[in-house]
Design a protein around this nucleic acid. Sequence first.
RNA 1: GGCCCCGUAGCCAAGUGGUAAGGCGACGGUUUGCAAAACCGUUAUGCGGCGGUUCGAAUCCGCCCGGGGCCUCCA
Length: 536
Amino acid sequence: MLRILNSLTRTKEDFKPIDPAGKHVTMYTCGPTVYDSLHLGHARAAITPDIVRRYLVYKGYQVRYATNFTDVDDKIIRRAIEERRDWRALTAEYIDEFHRVMLALNVAPADVYPRATDHIPEMIEIVQRLFKHGHAYVAKDGDIYFNIASFERYGKLSGRKLEEEEAGLSGRIDEARLAVKKNPGDFVLWKLLKNDKPEIAKGGEHVPRWASPWGDGRPGWHLECSAMSQKYLGVPFDIHCGGKDLLFPHHEDEKAQTECAFCDALGARESVHYWVHNEFLNAKARPEDAKVAAEHVDAQTGGVKMSKSLGNVRWVREMIWPEGPYDPMVVRMLMLGSHYRSPIVFEPAMLDEAAARLDRIYNALETVGRAIQSDMTISWRKSPEELALAGDPNAMTRQMPLLAAATLARQNFEIAMDDDFNTAGALGAVFDLITKINQDLSRYGTGKVPPGEGASFHEAARTVRRLLGVLGIRPDRAKGATGNDAEKLVDLLLYVRQEARTAKQFVLGDRIRDALSALGYEIEDLPGGKSAAKKK
RNA sequence: GGCCCCGUAGCCAAGUGGUAAGGCGACGGUUUGCAAAACCGUUAUGCGGCGGUUCGAAUCCGCCCGGGGCCUCCA
């Protein structure tokens, strides 16, 4: 039974879909505000729901998944004004980058990628519903606000009480804006153009605007998620993901709006059944990050928030191929190493460690592939048990422990993942099986498993690949960022080296290996005289 | 000020009442022309500290120390 830590109740709950048939699951994630490149934190925020979704699919559910783009926002407008660009061109550029990075990170595409600006009418309709039910009001300056005092459950998600909030807010809020609102915590539903901050109001054509019953302007931030999740998934839906920072105010407000706007249909029930929030990935300060002032650095861990104002942001594209040095799967492996609710204090060496772990997996799978490729008794049509039995009795006996290890790995994997998506534990189960495969493989010094004994290795490797797939790790080592010509030349050099080694000209062979190593290719000599090169 | 979270080996990290997964690194050995990969062995009598509850505590409770997050538009 899958259990999920629900932010709403702050307890682990058994997962039960809304669908009475227990088959379909609906899922929504708050996507990025598209005004800049993606950093490692965004990668974590995308990979977390991807794991949730993949595991649900593994469990047999049919998942409908929506994740949005926030393409209207103060930061976007400011950037557009700054760069004197059309804000649509700006957001299109970063939406494009988002898709490229997601493809590289093997984040499965969502069923829909709604954009805020494509849903203005839906948002206006929600505001009208809120007026109808008495939750919205026109403030003194004409902006439309949500009255949080009108919703008795306000604060339930983030565990806050109105009075506490008001106490905590003192001295830190904009007095001018406070004066127009009924409660300090009231948030804007529709912002009039004329009330914009001076630097935005002067932005001219760079400031997006839409007509509404209350005047030209733009929607409040939280409104888009209420509108789009309702439109594409319905109310209520099963799982809502997002970064921990969004819990308050964004999700609290989104929830309040949705539940108030659709309260006729919803009654007293929750609009989202499971709220899943991933922790942050913070960056360690680098010496070259001159802007990182000492007071931001955690004396013990050296951790410091990844923030552009501090100049320590790690862009994903600078890390992964083709721009950066790492296989994108390394980034995913980094995320899988800790639970999604634990903070990660990132430092570059962590990527090297993740790369080493990934290597251990790929090495084992490749070695198995070579060891059993000539075993013609392996057939996809037969079960591993049938195949094991097809050999001689001794071969069967030898194969049983590995088959048992594969089954055990699958079980332990599921136990870990069932417990609130414990990817680190699940990875432990995979590594246990990897070790068992390597142990059994090491019995055969020639690197070839005798014919008739390959079935268990085949099954074990298949299990590893399947489980990796659930975690979103591609089961085959990627070729790297090099072009085809480079690969061909490397192959040619390997051939020359092979000839040299056959002729016992080891000095020449070693020089070729060292030279390739300097270019970033690690050479591995295989049984039988051949060699393989892999990009470091 | 309010609310919440964390502290497990050199490093990353799982484990929330039954006697410390897994990975990286390091050291020694096997294998190899030499390597690489892989295998074997070693690497936490102990889970920030001190008390308490319990037959039994990394896990529960209290206090202390250290760190982090959120509190109006940050994933």
